[in-house]
Every structure is written in C-alpha cells, then in structure tokens.
C-alpha cells in the first residue's frame, strides 16, 4: 500500500492510502518500525483519512504501536477516521486504548 510520510512541527505523520487488511498491514507495520521513539525520536500520528476499510490485521498494527510507544517518551495518536474505521475501533473496544483525534490540527496541538 502507498504510505505518505510527512513531518510537521516535529511530528511524523503517516498517511496510508487504501485498504488496511492482512495483505497490506505488514507494509504499514514495517514503515512504523522505521520511526524511532527513543529520546531523539519523533511523535507519531497515523492519519487514516484515506483508509476506508480496516480489518483486525490493521487494528493489530495500531495496538502494537500503542504498546511500543506507551512506555517511551514519544507519543502516538490516530486521526481522521472514516465512519467504518471508527466503528470497527469502537466495536473492538480499541477506542479506549488509542488516542483518537478528529483531525490533524487537533492531534498536532496535543503533541505540543
């Protein structure tokens, strides 16, 4: 899957484009793995505006990222969810573990 990577105010924003399923999730996982989260690392925002579909494989990547970064000093959030994606997060109960913002601006403000 195509993943657009940008940086704004010291935050790395990853925006995957397409369906996040068991076939495509490994490439997102790999891309997230390249972003350090030690003391010299970056905050990470996963922008899901171009993801219209997510399965449990996509949720697993998000959960793994939360776990990895939870104990680190660099934070992680998810933003711009489409309706179906939000619903899957809610049904799975993931919305209580993942920091979710409606848009990029709100997410960036939270990192400051």
């Amino acid at each position: 899957m195509d993943i657009v990577k940008t940086e704004q105010r010291g935050v790395i924003i990853l925006a995957p484009d397409g369906r996040l399923d068991s076939n495509s999730a490994p490439s997102l996982e790999q891309e997230i793995g390249t972003i350090g989260f030690g003391s010299d690392g970056h905050h990470l925002l996963l922008d899901l505006s171009k993801v219209e579909y997510i399965s449990s494989a996509g949720l697993r990547v998000v959960l793994k990222t939360v776990k990895e970064r939870q104990s680190a000093s660099k934070s992680f959030a998810v933003s711009n969810m489409q309706d179906h994606v939000r619903e899957v997060f809610e049904i799975s109960g993931f919305d209580s573990y993942v920091t979710i913002f409606p848009d990029t601006a709100a997410a960036l403000a939270s990192f400051e």
């Binding site: 399965s55 449990s56 494989a57 949720l59 697993r60 959960l63 939360v66 776990k67 939870q70 899957v88 049904i91 799975s92 109960g93 209580s96 573990y97």
Partner: peptide, 21 residues
C-alpha cells in the same frame, strides 16, 4: 476480553469476534 489492561490484551480472537459481530 475488551476491557482488560492493554499490556495483557490478547487479540488472537479479534478477527473471528468481528466476523460474528
């Protein structure tokens, strides 16, 4: 289990859970 602490969360059955939901 959807409401247990994150560190203990087992997501193995999540796919089938969603399919049934």
């Amino acid at each position: 289990a959807l409401d247990i602490p994150l560190g203990d969360k087992h997501v193995g059955g999540l796919g089938i859970f969603l399919a049934r939901q």
